[in-house]
Write a protein that binds this DNA or RNA. Structure first.
Lengths: 229, 229
DNA sequence: CGTTGTGAACACTTTCACAGCC
DNA sequence: GGCTGTGAAAGTGTTCACAACG
């Protein structure tokens, strides 16, 4: 049992998953406001910028603590830092990308990577032909160097952008090397041990969800009253 | 207001959003089973393949109708077709991709696109330098041809893979052209009119969610030591 | 004042456990 | 016997509406 015996200003222990998923949205919106030299903002303003409603925003922030001022709003820079600290992006996280095909190259070149608390420390590929290439300023290295690279840089997050059939083996190797957080772009389900987090990004699934709703929109047959006015 | 009486044959009208988001998973798992020449499967088997638990799977399928046989399971090919029909991928959907940078090119080359009910009919980019290129067998065309292309091919789904600052203008243009479903890869919130669906795929957000959990894992005191050996 | 922070109500999702059927 | 389909219970997330407070 870890005592939640309050670290200094931490009343914020169990943050709901839905809230965690929105914190990066707020962080991005606050960064934009800060770049526009805005000093304070209301929950309404920030919520609009992030694309949520203000009640939800306030409820979310209430899980982190009480960082606003009633009658006034939030101090942009202060709140931005508090959220960054809560997410854990006040320092950079070293990341490896495995699978340097079209998608892997695009990811390696993605600038938002570096600017948002992540640093790509290595690109790996099993194909020896690719190992002569340099992508985004990094040499592509053989996959079997994974364990060494993870240990050397303290990598905690691995990105898989291989074809689907290779993904499970890559995930297994990442886990063996000590990586406990995986972002999977391969269109397949990954089985991992307890304690390892996998998040997936899947183009076909998103498109299919859109298709489902699109199909419903173009439904003129039934005597359904759609009521637009 | 008239009766919201459904068509009798269709008990499957209001499918919960959470279920819709999982149907593509089941479709993929069923396709894999079909390719392995498996004729029937149990909810347990299919659930494992899709990475969910069997109770959830059965509840989800119950929203579509009663396609299984008690004591036996589901007929793979039959269920696969029923789900494909429900999602709306028994025929192909024409798609345009706007923004042919690194990511746009990777998307254009993504083979799962074609094989899963979607057909890329055009690649668009505002940069006239790119308009001489051919990507994935398609010429990159000027952005202002959008409306014509949408009308010509009956495009209903648009994919945005531009830099963030351009995304809102692209979304607006898509909407004006008649596109009502958008998949947004640009790291920014899009404002769209009622009736238009936007789904977003956002690398930084996924990484930040992983970072949040990773940070919690490494809590046991000061020194963060990796590798459990 | 105006705006935050929050209990309480409501809505949605998951899980349980077993009746119903093959 | 074994597996599906489903009410009921439990858990999560969202919205409302207003008290608290600078």
């Amino acid at each position: 049992m870890y005592v939640s015996d309050r670290t200094p200003a931490e009343a914020a222990r169990d943050i709901p998953e839905a809230t965690v998923a929105r914190l990066p949205l707020y962080l991005r919106a606050l960064t934009a406001l800060a770049e526009a030299d805005q000093v304070t903002c209301s929950s309404e303003e920030l919520a609009t910028a992030a694309g949520v409603n203000s009640a939800k925003l306030r409820k979310d922030l209430s899980h982190l603590g009480s960082y606003g001022t009633r009658g006034v709003g939030y101090e942009v820079e202060y709140l931005r830092y508090q959220i960054a600290r809560e997410i854990g992006v006040t320092h950079d996280w070293p990341v490896v990308i495995v699978g340097i095909g079209n998608l892997g190259q695009a990811l390696a070149n993605f600038s938002g990577f570096r600017s948002r608390g992540f640093r790509v420390v290595a690109l790996l590929d099993a194909d020896s032909q690719r190992q002569s290439e340099v992508v985004a300023g990094l040499a592509v290295r053989p996959f079997d160097e994974l364990a060494g690279i993870v240990a050397e840089h303290g990598v905690a997050i691995g990105v898989i952008s291989t074809p689907a059939p290779a993904a499970q083996a890559v995930a297994d190797a990442l886990v063996v090397s000590g990586v406990r957080s995986i972002l999977n772009f391969a269109p397949t389900h990954l089985a991992v041990p307890e304690g390892v987090d996998v998040r997936k990004v899947d183009l076909s699934i998103e498109l299919q969800i859109l298709a489902y709703h699109e199909q419903r929109k173009a439904q003129p047959d039934a005597l359904d009253d759609e009521v637009t006015a």
